[in-house]
Amino acid sequence: MSRRRLNVNPLDYSRKLWMRCAMGFTFFFLYFPIVALIIFSFNDSKRNITWRGFTLKYYEKAFNNNQLHEAFANSLLIAGISTLTATVLGAMLGLALYRFRFPMQGPYEGIVHLPIVIPEICLAVAMVAFFATVEVPLGLVTITVSHIAFSIPFVAVVVRARMAGFNRALEEASADLGASQWQTFWNITFPYMKPGIVAGALLAFTLSLDDFVITFFTSGPGSTTFPIKIYSMVRFSVTPEVNAASTVLIVITLALTTLALWVQSKSQRNESNA
């Protein structure tokens, strides 16, 4: 037995060949389909079965596709309004849950966090039944309202997690020094909440931009969103244009999520320095 082997911790499974093979296989499984999809968006072949050379023409085609433009504009509009509303409401909810003890708190928390856990299809058809009952025609409004409803608890969870590290003594000190409740909130609590709010907003934005199932059921004529448009293209045929449109959405989502993580880690670093 060589010296080097003796030094290896027997629990260091990640050094074992079989473990490396298993992990390699799993990561291949996780990444191959997406990477292949992205690569084949540059494929110069309409049927897109084998590689026929590099081209950007399907990106050009996707960028010049008016229906895709319209769908993308709808998606941005919905995600924008939904994010704004859900962030305000979700931050309020997160702060209330962090701060107050009140009767029926357990059941209340269970209900407000329900949108995170229930199957999407159940929520989707419930919204359809609801809008039919109150006789609101399906369209951009119904999609936005539904997106806000399922985004609120996600924002609340993020904001509440952020507030868990807050030092309440700061608020007390501010009150002792004569600040009003509003002044204390605006000058002490809110600045601390901000990274949580930004992260929550970015999460709400990606959730809305990415949502398919709920949007699919609550959309009406003329309110096609980007994922819905991709879905109908997928149903119709599998061309590099679909891959190009998908790649654009992947890049946007990844960029936003990276930004959210960066905001969170930056705020954590600032605190540990302070």
Binding site: V88, L89, G90, M92, L93, L95, A96, R99, F100, F102, I111, V112, L114, P115, C122, L123, V125, A126, M127, A129, F130, T133, V145, S146, I148, A149, F150, I152, P153, A156
Partner: peptide, 23 residues
């Protein structure tokens, strides 16, 4: 407490709990 909890609660009651109740 009411300023913070009422708006989100109202939204979720109307656009989440009520749809489930209707269903």
């Amino acid at each position: 407490f009411f300023i913070l909890s009422m708006p989100p609660t109202a939204w979720l009651m109307i656009f989440f709990t009520l749809p489930l109740a209707i269903m």
